[in-house]
Write a protein that binds this DNA or RNA. Structure first.
Lengths: 151, 151
DNA sequence: GCTTACGATAAGCGCATGCGTATCATGGGT
DNA sequence: ACCCATGATACGCATGCGCTTATCGTAAGC
């Protein structure tokens, strides 16, 4: 059962993390569907949570989407009143993106439902592993891709 | 900078893990290219490491590939002498897949290079977080997708 | 022997995605 | 005024992938 092990006895990180990520995404999909959100739309809501984003291109880069693909996503979110696209008075080429109150409520509801599921999963872990896991994950998540790739 | 946080103060697991997985895969690609391997081919070598696999369909399922897509991958690996496809004497419809010695050497070389990079990354973490991270990751990696999705 | 089931392979369809390019509006520098 | 860079948008192309179907060989039960 324990395949792909090295002398130190662990599989490649990617070999463990990528399938785990797939499963976590699969776990989110039903929740998102209940709220009528697609994954890209949810990613946008998450990214816009804290502060507005000045340009759509920057938003696309941040969430790892193609800049030509989020246009339709933003159209849908704006149409449903979840985000605002306002021309930046200082640079009218740019559209400042921000959450509406409804958008924030949507984000809170969905994220709360998702994290509730995740807590059930984490509850399987011993307390100290769980804390180390979350600490390490948050540390690694703040690294830039180039720092992970190997500088 | 710390966006997408809940009252407990962490982003969604998937929101951290998926980009991390992408970055780890990106880090592997140059190593794989040096050895002339594609990601699917490397996945096959990893899966075959410990024991032979009885059918190609089972292999495809295990590594998350479509069963019709790995045919070409196996063709290439067999042509390069890295794997063997032997008819199962007990059921000649099946092709028992196994690593050749050359395949095992290739796997060891590539995995060692990859894990060497990963160790550099893990070295950034405090010792206890690192241990908890690896423990938790290995525990979660052995769960079936349905157990992660929420049973 | 005949039928049914399983496995490998090939070929085609469709979706999601990334990329390049063109267009138009705008801003900033010369 | 003029030129070039930037931003949003739309369009077309190519790719990679999953899914489905069809064909063929083989195994196993009747």
């Amino acid at each position: 059962m324990a395949g792909n092990t090295t002398p130190e006895g662990r599989p490649d990180l990617a070999a463990m993390i990528v399938p785990l990520g797939r499963a976590l995404v699969a776990a989110e999909l039903p929740v998102l569907r209940e709220h009528g959100l697609a994954m890209w739309a949810y990613s946008v809501l998450l990214r816009l949570d804290d502060e507005p984003v000045r340009t759509q291109a920057a938003l696309a880069r941040d969430i790892g989407a193609d800049k030509t693909r989020i246009i339709g996503v933003l159209d849908g979110l704006e149409e449903r009143g979840l985000i605002r696209r306002q021309s930046d008075p200082a640079d009218r080429r740019a559209r400042v993106l921000s959450l509406t109150p409804a958008g924030r409520r949507m984000r809170d509801a969905v994220q709360s439902a998702i994290q509730q599921r995740e807590e059930q999963l984490l509850a399987r872990l011993p307390e100290e592993d769980r804390r180390g896991f979350l600490n390490a994950l948050q540390a690694l998540a703040t690294l830039s891709p180039s720092e992970i790739t190997g500088d």
